[in-house]
Computed example of a mutant assay.
Amino acid sequence: MSRIRVVAAGVSPMVAARTMSAAAGSSEGPGSAAGGTGPGSPSRMVKLAGVPGSEPHKVNDMLLLRPARPGAPLRTPEGTRDTEQHVVFFPGDIQNFMEEMVLHAEGIQWQNWSFERVALILGHHFPRHHVWVVRAARMYLHKFSSYCNFVESNLFGAPEHSADYGAVRHLRALLTNGLERAGLKSAASVFPPPGFSLVLVGFSKGCVVLNQIVHELERAQADPELAPFLSCVTDFYWLDGGHPGGSGTWVTEQHVLEVLAASRIALHAHVTPYEVRDPMRSWVGHEHRRFVQILKELGAPLSNTLHFEDEPASIDNHFRVIVEF
């Protein structure tokens, strides 16, 4: 979110009940877990605190939700084992671990969109995937997320994109170390393993990470260490991107989008009137239209969806796009 409004969260009763039931009994200390699939089964939800990234001072807390799949691992139609499928989600402002959100007045109002509950929602979207939620390195005033480990950002999280900041390298290191910490790979094993696939999802402020990765694509694809990792990315999902800067909410540079289109990564843009029809931030809608126009002209595999088109713009629907995409 580019700004926070103090209103009640509008979560559908069905989604709230389902996620609250699934999250019941969770404990969120380092390495703790919740939601096992039965007696003696591994826990599904694990919090990983201080996962190191590309440099010693760059660490991020992460939440992992393992897929709910009792019995033998399934295989996709392409033959890829589901244990090798992963989704990484970058949240927006005010979203946090539940234990943090309930400590602050604004956080309590939005607790239906905590990391734990969003992970469960994404688990319904991607039932065969491991779901990773990455916490921003800084949260100013407990609500303004700054993804400064991925992109140069000010205190409020407004980004300064460049071609060489290192978001791709940091994400690769986070996943390598996160998988090891969660017991999903050994320290000596090759990463990424054969059949590994990755879906990247950004919501609101979290879309700045996707945008930075797009800016880095050309150089990263030429890097012998990063290229195999990038080749595993199958999809980008932008969910109602927004940040407090005065421009750059969507990528509009022609050459950068040419590189993205040529990658043949499946691209998905899901927006609501809250972001793209705000008269006080008209550049967001203009940039979104330009992003879509250029990529379509380039023949990129892009889907673009405007949700809640006939409803008034609201922060409730802004969050609900996480359910509806």
Rank of each mutant, 00 (worst) to 15 (best):
M20P: 00
Y140V: 10
A16N: 11
A8V: 10
F196H: 08
E84W: 12
R3F: 04
S145L: 04
Q254W: 13
S303A: 14
T80G: 02
G248T: 08
P193H: 05
V190Q: 14
V59T: 15
E180M: 12
R66S: 12
R66I: 08
E78V: 14
V59L: 13
V201K: 03
P244G: 08
L302W: 01
T234S: 14
S2C: 13
S26K: 07
L141G: 06
R69Q: 09
L171G: 09
S153W: 03
G107Q: 08
S12T: 07
S27Y: 14
V15T: 14
G25F: 06
Y237Q: 08
G38D: 00
S41D: 03
V11T: 14
N149M: 02
V151W: 01
M1K: 04
H57S: 13
V15R: 13
A16L: 15
M20A: 11
H86T: 08
P192F: 02
A119Q: 06
Y165N: 10
G107K: 06
M101C: 12
V292E: 13
H255F: 14
Q111A: 12
L295Y: 05
G166Q: 08
V190D: 08
V15S: 12
L171H: 05
S2F: 15
R135P: 07
G195N: 01
P244E: 02
V214H: 00
D310W: 06
G195R: 08
A269S: 14
E275K: 03
G71V: 13
Q109L: 15
V199A: 02
W110L: 15
E225Q: 10
V15I: 14
S263Y: 05
A68Y: 09
S146T: 04
E287K: 00
E100Q: 11
S186Q: 14
V214R: 00
V46A: 02
V134K: 02
F203Y: 12
E311H: 09
E28N: 00
P224L: 13
P192W: 03
L184G: 04
V199D: 02
A227F: 04
D93S: 11
F196A: 06
G31R: 00
A24R: 13
G50Q: 11
S162V: 03
D61H: 02
C232M: 02
A266H: 11
E311F: 09
A72L: 10
R69S: 09
L120R: 05
A220V: 01
N112R: 10
P52D: 06
H124C: 15
G157T: 13
V208L: 05
G38M: 00
A24P: 06
M14F: 10
S41P: 01
N304S: 15
V284L: 00
A22C: 08
E160R: 15
D93K: 00
T19D: 13
L217T: 04
S54Q: 08
S146I: 04
A34Q: 07
S282I: 15
K205R: 10
M20T: 05
A187W: 07
P52F: 04
V284Q: 00
N177G: 01
E106R: 15
W238T: 05
R290E: 15
A173P: 02
V199N: 00
